[in-house]
């Protein structure tokens, strides 16, 4: 690969939630800004832009990442998944999403999309976490509304009763 010049914009192509999309980015553009303002999706929420709050968490080539600590150009040629990939094509919520609804695991919803992506990756590795393990994993996200109670209940319920 040749050097990308700081003042130029480059095409960035990725498979985003199952669809190929292309936008343009300078080397310094953050993936969170690229997804929101260049591609126009609404599921990568910009929170702290220093990697602590987790609202912008997405999955890139199977790895969970902070959108604000990733450059758009780094995601060129990758597969990116956000919370918009979780419901079925015809708009049915997944069992995990339904569990959040049932247990009031969200209020303003701003942190929720990032948390769902962490869970998507994490539950793949550890499908039946203990509450302690789950809370440890969730400590990589900040939620200001729920006190985490509904989130923890939703995930434990889902892990217990999922048919997926």
């Amino acid at each position: 690969m040749s050097k990308l010049n700081k003042d130029a914009r480059y095409p960035v192509t990725m498979t985003l939630n199952g669809e190929e999309v292309t936008g343009h980015a300078e080397p310094r553009m953050l993936l969170s800004d690229f997804l929101t303002h260049e591609i126009g999706i609404t599921s990568c929420h910009v929170g702290c832009e220093h990697g602590v709050c987790g609202a912008c968490t997405v999955i890139v080539d199977g790895t969970v990442m902070r959108g604000c600590l990733t450059l758009a150009v780094q995601a060129d040629g990758t597969t990116v998944e956000t919370a918009e990939s979780l419901a079925s094509k015809d708009g049915k919520l997944s069992e995990l999403q339904l569990a959040f609804k049932k247990h009031h695991g969200l209020q303003c919803g701003y942190c929720t999309t990032g948390i769902l992506m962490s869970l998507t990756a994490y539950l793949e590795e550890n499908p039946k976490p203990t509450e302690e393990e789950l809370r440890d994993m969730l400590s990589g996200h900040l939620c200001r509304c729920t006190g985490y109670v509904g989130i923890v209940k939703a995930v434990l319920d889902y892990c217990e009763n999922s048919t997926e």
């Binding site: 690969m1 040749s2 700081k6 003042d7 080397p27 310094r28 832009e49 220093h50 150009v73």
Partner: peptide, 10 residues
């Protein structure tokens, strides 16, 4: 809170 411009090489 955005970075200053830089070149990039993978």
């Amino acid at each position: 809170m955005k970075p200053k411009a830089f070149d990039y090489l993978k």
